[in-house]
Amino acid sequence: MNGVTAALSLLGVAVIAVLGVYGASWAVRLSSTPVDAAPFGSGLEPVEHAVSRFHVRWYTVTMLFLAFDMEMVFMYPWTRVISVMGTSAVIEMFVFLAILLAGVVYAWREGALRWT
């Protein structure tokens, strides 16, 4: 089977399975009228909408993560050509990684990996 066909077919199977579960529930459940519920607040009523601008205190870690994530884009194809390119490929990749790691050490020393 062609890769794309197989992937799309498998997606179809999975989606049909999920829809099947919803369908089965729709068919057998006691009532399709939803119960009016409140988001769980230990028994008390909510006072405002929970969706809000969440104070993400680990945003510096996300920056570091992005740097490494881009590096991964190079590293995946790199794995295939190590023997072809020879020693230079390995040296270049690991010098690059070493530079990134130096950044991590700096960020760590500055306390960017702690937020509590």
Partner: peptide, 14 residues
Amino acid sequence: RALLTQPRRLPAPD
């Protein structure tokens, strides 16, 4: 049990 459960409506869910 999960299939039998009545749906829940929360205030303004996405």
